[in-house]
Design a protein around this nucleic acid. Structure first.
Lengths: 285, 285
DNA sequence: GTTCCGCATGAATCGATAG
DNA sequence: ACTATCGATTCATGCGGAA
């Protein structure tokens, strides 16, 4: 299978129009935060952030498949001693636009930037807002299961009375089915808090997230061959991870320098990926 | 020093009017969440939550000292497959009321409620919204510094409640100083993510939050002799912790049963706290 | 006295069923 | 169509009894 990675140079507001309706399985992006990174994006004033973002999210709503998911990594900055409210306002506005605000994940940044202020501590978390077009969407929960705690060891030895009672209350032949469930429990489902360290690899791009972040959501919301979109590509982390995970992807970047860097990085990979594929076919299973 | 713990039986909307202007140093509370705890409290519909809360927050704004802080523990529930937006709307409305939304802390609940659903994971975090009247407020950051690397959680856990009480009740030498004795230098400021487990309820009561939660904020925003207010007292966790930490406190509770239980628990403690102080001075260290 | 192990139960959420 | 109730699902924690 050939993995396509299509990169667009330009403004998301215009470039997104080139993408077909209902063609994207997952949108994962970290847009420029309000009034930050002035050097690269010019900076959007907090008061006008929703206003600026809404035409883009309207396009995203169009290109996303009905069963697809939009994950928005964002965090409000401090303005004048207060947390700015533009993210809250954005959520409310996007719901009016037709998005469903399904969930808010927390990215707990293990090693946040050091510093000291008289009236606040280091900010070590960011929002990961999950939006959907429908209540029903694709979610492959088993792909992100994590090893269980010590609890499982003792639990598997003998079922407690309560567990038995709860099982008996089920109508029909649920008991045997449950036993097999217990025995498979060496792994548990995760929660809506992600605990990842920030990576400082990308020296060119100022606000890159660690690869583990898009990787987790790509696992959770897509399968191989699906299409991932990042309308604010930056250093291309989302697209690189998607490619490695055998997902097609689309990236849009307004800064030519970033666009070219990612283009150069992607192309050699493409050659490598195309060659050994037959080998994998031979070897597989 | 005699520690006052004043308990009011009644509705916060009326009882708060009995409290003097600018008399409270810290408000820490966890109001009934929308449509939650219907059996004990009325249960507020998500659509009318801000409307219900605003008269109360107006009173809170009045009674809080200009240098004081209001910490609100809350989390929106899922309604119809979506996260409800009433908390976002409440933040926006409270700002219009005159509050400054200084910060949002995250309480990462280690043991969240179990369950499995096709479209979401377990919810394991809650918001701790910090509001202030002014940009300048009292914050004693050194009091909540933590050892670098691994926090000696196991050692802290081992200490019984009586140990905690003994340490706290010694004037001028609290729990924090003992920690610094064990693990000398190399302490760091914490971040805005708190990682605590919910306390399993054993006998009488289920507390909404673990003692560590109000304890942390009481350390951070008050000193001994300051006044802490919880307008939704519930099982009285905030007041009990405040008392142990030698802060005066005010608690308001609408359910008579809770009010009476807390009343009974507080009074005997008062006697115990005053008596054995000299003894501990002999034994201490 | 420690350590180990069994046990109940949570500020939950969904889908089906009933009014 | 819309709301209210109920059963099923699931895992970390601290307590208390046992080894």
């Amino acid at each position: 299978m050939e993995i396509r990675t299509d990169l667009y140079l330009g403004d998301s507001r215009t470039e997104l129009k080139k993408i077909a309706d209902n063609s994207i399985d997952l949108i994962f992006t970290s847009p420029p935060y309000a009034d930050q990174r002035k050097n690269t994006y010019g900076g959007i004033h907090p008061d006008h952030y929703a206003e600026w973002f809404l035409p883009i999210s309207e396009q995203l709503l169009r290109v996303l498949k009905p069963t697809g998911t939009f994950v928005l990594n964002i965090k409000e900055k401090v303005v004048n001693g207060e947390r700015s409210t533009y993210v809250l306002e954005l959520i409310l506005a996007m719901r009016k636009q037709g998005w469903l605000w399904t969930e808010e994940f927390i990215w707990h940044k293990k090693n946040s930037y050091p510093g000291k202020w008289p009236n606040r501590f280091r900010d070590s978390w960011e929002r990961l807002l999950q939006f959907n077009k429908q209540k029903k969407f694709h979610m492959y929960q088993e792909e992100v299961m994590v090893p269980m705690g010590d609890w499982a060891k003792t639990r598997l030895k003998r079922l407690s009375d309560t567990d038995k009672k709860r099982d008996e209350s089920r109508v029909g032949s649920g008991f045997g089915k449950n036993i097999s469930n217990w025995l498979n429990r060496d792994r548990a489902y995760p929660t809506n808090v992600l605990h990842l360290a920030t990576e400082c690899n990308n020296k060119n791009h100022s606000a890159a997230f660690p690869e583990g972040l898009p990787e987790w959501f790509i696992k959770l919301f897509t399968r191989e061959g699906d299409v991932v979109l990042d309308p604010f590509m930056g250093s291309g982390t989302t697209n690189k991870v998607a490619r490695r995970m055998l997902r097609h992807s689309v990236g849009i970047e307004i800064v030519r320098e970033y666009y070219e860097i990612v283009s150069r990085e992607i192309e050699p990979v493409e050659l490598v990926l195309l060659e050994p594929e037959r080998e994998y076919d031979k070897v597989s299973i």
